[in-house]
Amino acid sequence: MTQYALYLNYEFCTGCHSCEVACRNEKKIPLGDFGMKLLEDRPRQHADGSWHWDYIAYPTELCDLCADRVAEGKMPSCVQMCQAKCLHFGTIEECAAMLAEKGEKAAIFLP
């Protein structure tokens, strides 16, 4: 059976929270709980003066990668609504290929 995953290019995750709200709408998750959760590693300056500030959106155990939507030929809700277009859905192999191509600041998630 084909196994799917989410690929996140977190160099460009802007922290907009759209995935969280889109997921909650889709999976009818009550406020306060999450199927997609946005984490922030808050801004700080490295010793050389350069900056660090990352957001990472990741799927929790409530995520089923929108199996119903995917069966209808749609994208998972979080991927469709992602404003930065930094979230992608595909097979593990497709996601791994994106990861290898990106080479940095990217991750694959299996909820």
């Binding site: 907009c16 929270h17 759209s18 969280e20 709200v21 889109a22 709408n25 889709e26 994208m75 809700s77 469709q80 609504m81 992602c82 404003q83 277009k85």
Partner: peptide
């Protein structure tokens, strides 16, 4: 019952901010 981003919109192509999602 629900608002989604329209994947066929030429500019936003499915993207939508939290204000319209809510």
């Amino acid at each position: 019952t629900k608002v989604e981003g329209d994947p066929e919109h030429p500019i936003t192509r499915g993207a939508l901010c939290t204000r319209c999602l809510a």
